[in-house]
Amino acid sequence: MESYIVRIYRQDTADPHNMTGTILKAGDGTETRFSSGDELINLLWQLEASDLTISPSHYRHLN
């Protein structure tokens, strides 16, 4: 299974679904950006992600 790292760079405190960030594929570093929570979920769905690990900072790591 591929590994991905989710990084959120901007998030609206009033509307947490309003966020901007990247999904980084571990290994080759392929980057996909997202501009909302829904878009992030759709991308994760497409990547057939089965587990999400949240690391200590605002960065999220996906296995």
Binding site: I5, G27, S57, Y59
Partner: peptide, 19 residues
């Protein structure tokens, strides 16, 4: 390095460093 088991620790160290 692309070992998937190393990613969580790598990210933790990276975020600690940036913080």
């Amino acid at each position: 390095s692309s070992e998937s088991w190393a990613i969580t620790y790598r990210e933790r160290l990276r975020s600690k460093y940036i913080r």
